[in-house]
C-alpha cells in the first residue's frame, strides 16, 4: 500500500509546489517509486516546476472522465526513473474533480507506487479538501509570517476534521511542519518570526527549514526541482528534509546567518550562493 502525502498550507505562494516537486524528486532519488499529483485544476503549475510542461497530453480530469487511461496521463520523469507526474487540467473548472474519481486514481496508483504526493491548491475549497482527503501524512508548508502561520493552523484543523482518516475515526493524519523562505538574517534582526516561535505556535513535529534562497527561483526558471541543485542551501535543506521523512536523524542546518560578506563583496553587490 502506498503512503499518500498531501503538501498543503492554506495560504498561497508559500512554496507548496516547489516543495512537492523537491520532495517527490528526493524520494524518487532514494529509490522510492513516487508519483506527484497536481490538484490545482485551472491553475496547474507543477508541470512547469518539474520541467515537463511540453510533455502534458492528458491530465487528471481526462482520467476521471474516462477520456484517457491513467497510464496515458502519467508523465515519467526523464531524470529520475522512479518518478512520475500526474498533471492537473488547465482548461476545466474545479468541479471536474470528484471524490470518487480521485479515490479510483489513488487506489490504482497505490498498486504501483510507494509514495503518492498530492500538491494541494491554496485555500480550503474543493480542490484543497480533495487533495488532503485521502492523506496518511501531511507536509504543512509555512512561511515565518503571520498570515501563513494562521492559515497553516486552520489547515491543521481541517486535516483533523475533514480528512478520510478523521471521518473514519482512524489514526490521525501524521503532520509535518516545513518552514520555508526562512531568512536567518532577518530573524537575527528581529524582523521575522523565529523558528522556535513558529514551532511553538503550530506545535507539530518539524520536518525541515528551507532558507530563503535564490536557487529556488533559478530552479523554477529552468524547470528543475531545486533538490537537484545540490550546491544550493535550499537544495541541501530539502535533501535533509527527505532524509528525515524517511526516518533519518539529521541536524537542522542553515538556521544561523551565513558569514557576513566582506567589504569587497558588499561594495560590489556580491550575492551569497
Amino acid at each position: 500500500m502506498a503512503q499518500v502525502i498531501v503538501v498543503t498550507s492554506g495560504k498561497g505562494g508559500v512554496g507548496k509546489t516547489t516543495t512537492s516537486a523537491a520532495v517527490a524528486t528526493g524520494l524518487a532519488q532514494r529509490g522510492k517509486k513516487t508519483v506527484v499529483i497536481d490538484f490545482d485544476v485551472g491553475l496547474r503549475n507543477l508541470d512547469l516546476i518539474m520541467g515537463v510542461e511540453r510533455r502534458v497530453v492528458f491530465d487528471i480530469v481526462n482520467v476521471i472522465q474516462g477520456e484517457a487511461r491513467l497510464n496515458q496521463a502519467l508523465i515519467r520523469d526523464k531524470r529520475v526513473d522512479t518518478l512520475a507526474i500526474l498533471p492537473a487540467s488547465q482548461t476545466r473548472d474545479k468541479d471536474a474533480l470528484t471524490r470518487e474519481g480521485v479515490s479510483t486514481i489513488i487506489e490504482e496508483l497505490s498498486a504501483d507506487f510507494d509514495y503518492i504526493l498530492c500538491d494541494s491548491p491554496a485555500g480550503i475549497e474543493k480542490g484543497a479538501l480533495l487533495a488532503l482527503y485521502f492523506a496518511d501524512q501531511a507536509i504543512v508548508v509555512t512561511n515565518p509570517e503571520v498570515s501563513s502561520v494562521r492559515d497553516s493552523d486552520r489547515i491543521l484543523g481541517v486535516l483533523q476534521s475533514k480528512s478520510k482518516r478523521a471521518e473514519e475515526k482512524k489514526d490521525k493524519v501524521k503532520e509535518h511542519l516545513l518552514v520555508t523562505r526562512y531568512d536567518p538574517n532577518r530573524v537575527e534582526r528581529g524582523e521575522m518570526l523565529k523558528l522556535e516561535d513558529v514551532r511553538e505556535i503550530l506545535a507539530i513535529p518539524l520536518l525541515g527549514v528551507i532558507p530563503e534562497n535564490e536557487s529556488v527561483l533559478k530552479a523554477s526558471n529552468t524547470g528543475t526541482p531545486v533538490i537537484m541543485d545540490t550546491e544550493s542551501v535550499a537544495g541541501q535543506a530539502y535533501k535533509d528534509a527527505v532524509g528525515r521523512f524517511l526516518g533519518e536523524d539529521l541536524p537542522h542546518r542553515f538556521l544561523e546567518p551565513a558569514k557576513k560578506p566582506g567589504l569587497f563583496q558588499r561594495l560590489f553587490g556580491g550575492r551569497a550562493a
Binding site: 494562521r150 534582526r189 518570526l193 505556535i201
Partner: peptide, 22 residues
C-alpha cells in the same frame, strides 16, 4: 523596534480564539 515579537503575540491571541471556535 523589532517587529517579530509583535507578530508572535498577535498570532497567539488570534489562534487561541480561532481554535476555540473550531
Amino acid at each position: 523596534p523589532p517587529s517579530a515579537s509583535a507578530a508572535k503575540e498577535r498570532l497567539q491571541i488570534v489562534l487561541a480564539h480561532e481554535r476555540i471556535g473550531r
